Amino acid sequence: MGIFCAIIAGFVRTVDGLNEWLGRAVAWLALGMVMVTFLVVILRYGFDLGWIALQESVVYMHAVLFLLGAGYTLKHDAHVRVDILYQRMGAKGRAWVDFLGAWLLLVPVCVFIFWSAWDYVAASWAIREASREAGGLPAVFLLKSVILGFAAIFLLQGVAQSGRALLIILDRPLKGERS
């Protein structure tokens, strides 16, 4: 049982570290979005200039921030939760809800998103899809690929969260965490 728990703990720490790094990295895109939006407004109203690619870059940053930051949000338990009953449960009760929720809801949804988006993304890559707008960004296929990245990173964090919950259920919480 000890080696099993050690493997789970190692996996949880690895995925947590990955999502911590990724979340902190993509968080900078929020600042980038503000700065580029400010620049778009100054150029348009101050100098009567505009570039479609600059405007589209805000949409790209927004998509990457939210999709690749989702695992970080889940890691920090900052997602939307209706916790009328959850907040009244003990640690093991919450762990069971987290464990079952991951395997009955989160994992199937992430697998479905990945599976259903695969052809959509592959078709975009096949033609190296670019913006429909003249002067737009030539990398729509890369933007669509972020959907697969979201499904993968969110799935990994969901499995890690279920591993954390399982350790609590087995009375072997990660060091520094209470059961």
Rank of each mutant, 00 (worst) to 15 (best):
M1A: 12
A6K: 11
I8S: 01
A9T: 02
G10H: 00
R13K: 08
R13D: 00
V15M: 00
N19C: 10
N19Q: 03
R24E: 05
V26N: 01
W28E: 05
W28T: 10
A30K: 02
A30S: 13
L31F: 11
G32N: 02
M33C: 11
V34T: 10
T37P: 06
F38P: 01
L39G: 15
V41Y: 06
V41D: 09
V41F: 12
I42Q: 11
I42H: 09
R44F: 10
Y45K: 05
G46P: 05
G46D: 05
F47V: 04
A53W: 08
L54N: 06
L54V: 14
L54H: 06
E56L: 11
E56N: 11
M61C: 12
H62C: 11
H62P: 05
V64R: 00
F66Y: 10
L67R: 00
L68T: 02
L68C: 02
A70V: 05
A70D: 01
G71N: 02
Y72W: 13
Y72G: 01
Y72T: 03
T73E: 08
L74C: 05
L74P: 01
L74W: 05
K75R: 15
H79G: 09
R81S: 12
R81G: 10
M89R: 11
M89C: 08
G90M: 05
K92L: 08
K92E: 06
R94V: 14
D98N: 15
F99M: 04
G101A: 10
A102M: 07
L104M: 12
L104W: 04
L106G: 02
V107G: 02
P108C: 05
C110F: 02
V111R: 05
F114L: 09
W115A: 12
A117I: 04
W118F: 15
W118K: 08
W118Q: 07
A123T: 15
A123F: 14
S124E: 11
I127H: 06
I127F: 12
R128Y: 15
R128E: 12
S131D: 08
S131P: 07
R132C: 08
E133I: 13
A134Y: 10
A134D: 09
G135Y: 09
G135D: 09
P138H: 09
A139I: 13
L143V: 12
G149D: 04
A151C: 04
A152R: 00
A152L: 14
F154K: 06
F154W: 11
L155D: 00
L156Y: 03
Q157C: 03
G163V: 01
G163K: 00
A165C: 08
L166T: 04
I169Y: 01
L170F: 06
L170T: 08
P173H: 15
G176K: 07
E177M: 14
